[in-house]
Design a protein around this nucleic acid. Structure first.
Lengths: 219, 219
DNA sequence: TCTTGGATCTTGACACTATAAAGATATCTG
DNA sequence: CAGATATCTTTATAGTGTCAAGATCCAAGA
């Protein structure tokens, strides 16, 4: 994932700044996430990303076209992160289908917490290019895992009340983990009565929430 | 310099363009929401708002200070909408505490659907000024209603499993309705297997989701 | 080895944007 | 009727995304 000679193209040092960066695409993605981590979404700027990568303002256009191109590439990584983390969690909790869904949901939240800038880009309101095939593919992959798991459960439990159908259950699962992640990352939770300071208590809270929903789904 | 009195063709109505707008504050709020409804969050611009209100680019600063001021005023309206709609729903469904929570949750989603631009501002990533006392107050009011309702329920049902405590339940309720609203408004649901085209089916889906969660909470 | 085509980056320019300072105008108060 | 004050305009500054044209490097083919 890194270049062959890693100390060659650092921006802030006065190392011979080459005309060709060598790995600009990756560098810009890193710059963008670091920038958002520092100054928030509002502080994101394509020019500043280029500046941090040690490159001219219009260099990014040759790799991503426009801003949405860079953001879409990052969003694709975001969906990929979620999908692979879900798959991993699913494998770990193998056996009980309900436990697998619980693990999948927790994985979603964990990924959001691990890289907030990436999650904000993936699910924020900044423009994305949904014609990007990679983005589209990874997004469908992520949601597919969750939906398949819910379908498995509802197939198992024999579906009592027809009102509680599979679609509603999968959307409910997605909504609860997504809503929690969003509220948490935007600092909406600790602004009010909820104090979720230590990281442990966040995961604990997420566990409880999911238990409630899954408890409601299986019945 | 512009014509002071007689000739006017700038505004859509018969209003003569005066030096003093008369109700610029409200006009800017309306312009902002209309603009976002048309061109999305990315198309929002303070200058364009001023343009639509028929005033100079820096006129808004005298009413809101900076961009975050205008957005915060709108966000305060957003929280107020949610709070009052929740209170209304609570009154309508009076009697069963569980039905009340269900109604409160549905109200949240309905408000989001009724005025998407306002909801996007209220819960989006654009900068807000949380020193704005009105914004803070309305936000606390909204969450307070939901939390009090959950507390009522858990007091009623006698709280069996201590794992499923009140805090987790209220956050779960907030998360599921907020997550659903966000995913819906950002077009993330109908992009995949879920097709929520007719408005009726959206409310139906929301009902089912909430039923599942509440079912899980009361047990 | 030398040349040449294509990918990569820079320069320069344009039309935007937010915001601040200072001047112009209307409304309100005494 | 006069000041004072709130409201809006003008003007200016610094920053932004994107485009077109030029500069530079790399990697084949002769």
């Amino acid at each position: 994932m890194c270049a062959s000679s890693s100390d060659e193209h650092n921006s802030d040092t006065e190392k011979t700044r080459r005309y060709h960066h060598g790995d600009l695409r990756q560098a810009l993605i890193r710059s963008a996430e670091a920038l958002i981590a520092e100054k928030g979404i509002a502080g994101f700027t394509l020019r500043e990303c280029a500046r941090r990568a040690g490159v001219s303002p219009s260099a990014p256009s040759h790799h991503f076209g426009h801003v949405a191109g860079l953001l879409s590439a990052i969003a694709a990584l975001g969906f990929s992160d979620i999908a692979t983390a879900m798959e991993h969690a699913q494998d770990q909790a193998q056996g009980n289908a309900l436990d697998e869904l619980q693990a999948i949901g927790e994985a979603y939240i964990t990924v959001a917490m691990m890289n907030p800038p990436r999650f904000r880009i993936t699910f924020g309101q900044m423009p994305l290019d949904w014609n990007n095939p990679e983005l589209l593919h990874e997004a469908q992959r992520a949601f597919g895992i969750l939906e398949r798991q819910v379908r498995t459960i509802r197939g198992d439990s024999g579906a009592g009340d027809p009102v509680l159908d599979t679609q509603a259950a999968s959307v409910a699962a997605w909504s609860i983990v997504h809503g929690f992640s969003t509220l948490l990352l935007d600092g909406r939770l600790n602004r009010f009565s909820v104090d979720v300071d230590p990281e442990k208590s966040v995961k604990n809270l997420a566990q409880k929430m999911l238990k409630m929903l899954i408890n409601g789904i299986e019945n």
